[in-house]
């Protein structure tokens, strides 16, 4: 019984959070100045046509009616229709989310793995040249504008050395003029590598420093000293004593970064012409495509709430001291 009550409570809390966030997002878009019709503006368009468009977007209704419809739609998981694409938001998202997952989620995973591995190494070898070198390099890439960094990588590795494609997720000529499934998979992977390297290089540092800090803290714990005194091999002490405990906060950050990764990244998607959701969200916000922007935020909020629940569950699994009975 008790075991069930906790998750149930979390789910209810999550739903309430979702409701509040979605309400704020609704209001935010309405309060923000800007006309959704700005994307269709044309001097030859008569006021009557503008009125027709406004009506078909549902913008001629009073705000509370719009809000009511919005809530009703959310309840039935209907995210509405994008103004710009005149297509259900769910369809637009469904087309973009897998692309985003492929790039940004793999990058999150990769930078977490890299960050945890490097973080534990430099924490273990504190004050070594390796620590200074990795921290400096990590911070350098972390602080570098990703647009610029991506451009340099594209110029060097794609344009000059011809190792990778310049941009996009697929080779359009190859795809449209006929390729086998195998070739297509290789092609996507081929396109994936450069943006993946860019993102990972730019973001592993956060994880690395977090891991390092957390590990340095854990290394002060008695059980780590004790394990050393027990004469356990260095690697065992590092990995199953110090790192194992230091990973807990890092895993929280990792799961949150996973949930955030679904939002993609505007600049990366722009420079690599990656058809992900970040650029779409940006365009939707700029063009006041309320349904599309709201849909993006809905997914992002949902993922964050899920991530927090997942973190709780993972914690109970990783740290036996935590239990939710």
């Amino acid at each position: 019984m008790g075991r069930l009550r906790y998750p149930l409570r979390r789910i209810i809390e999550g739903l309430i959070t979702l409701f509040i966030v979605m309400t704020i997002i609704f209001l935010l878009f309405r309060v923000m100045p800007g006309d959704p019709l700005s994307i269709v503006i044309d001097p030859k368009m008569t006021p009557e046509v503008k009125e027709m468009i406004r009506h078909s977007y549902g913008l001629d209704q009073p705000m509370f009616v719009q809000y009511g419809i919005y809530l009703k739609n959310l309840f039935t998981l209907n995210l509405g229709e994008s103004f710009r694409y005149s297509q259900p938001v769910s369809e637009v998202l469904a087309a973009r989310i897998p692309n985003t997952l492929l790039l940004f989620t793999s990058a999150s995973v990769l930078s977490a793995v890299l960050g945890i591995i490097l973080g534990r190494i430099i924490a273990w070898r504190r004050n070594s040249k390796l620590e200074y070198g990795l921290t400096l390099a990590g911070l350098f890439f972390y602080e570098m504008p990703i647009f610029w960094f991506g451009l340099i990588l594209i110029y060097l590795f794609a344009f000059r050395l011809n190792l990778f494609p310049i941009s996009g997720m697929i080779d359009f000529e190859l795809w449209t003029l006929g390729a086998t499934t195998g070739e297509k998979i290789i092609d996507i992977l081929h396109h994936l590598i450069l943006p993946l390297i860019t993102l990972t290089t730019a973001s592993f540092c956060g994880m690395m420093l977090l891991m390092r800090t957390s590990m340095v803290e854990t290394m002060k714990e008695d059980y780590v000293e004790a394990a050393k005194a027990r004469g356990l091999p260095d690697k065992v002490v590092r990995d199953s004593y110090a790192a194992r405990n230091a990973e807990l906060p890092v895993i929280t950050a990792f799961i949150l970064s996973l949930s955030a990764s679904i939002g993609g990244g505007v600049l990366t998607e722009k420079i690599f012409s990656w058809p992900g959701i970040g650029y779409e969200l940006y365009q939707a916000t700029i063009g006041r495509d309320y349904p599309l922007a709201q849909g993006c935020f809905f997914i992002l909020t949902l993922m964050t709430i899920l991530a927090v629940i997942v973190i709780d569950i993972t914690y109970a699994y990783l740290d036996p001291r935590v239990s939710y009975d």
Binding site: E221, Y223, R244, L318, D319, R321
Partner: peptide, 14 residues
Amino acid sequence: MIFQGAMNSLNPVR
């Protein structure tokens, strides 16, 4: 060795 503060000399997650 039996440590000072034996309480904390065990790895809490194992």
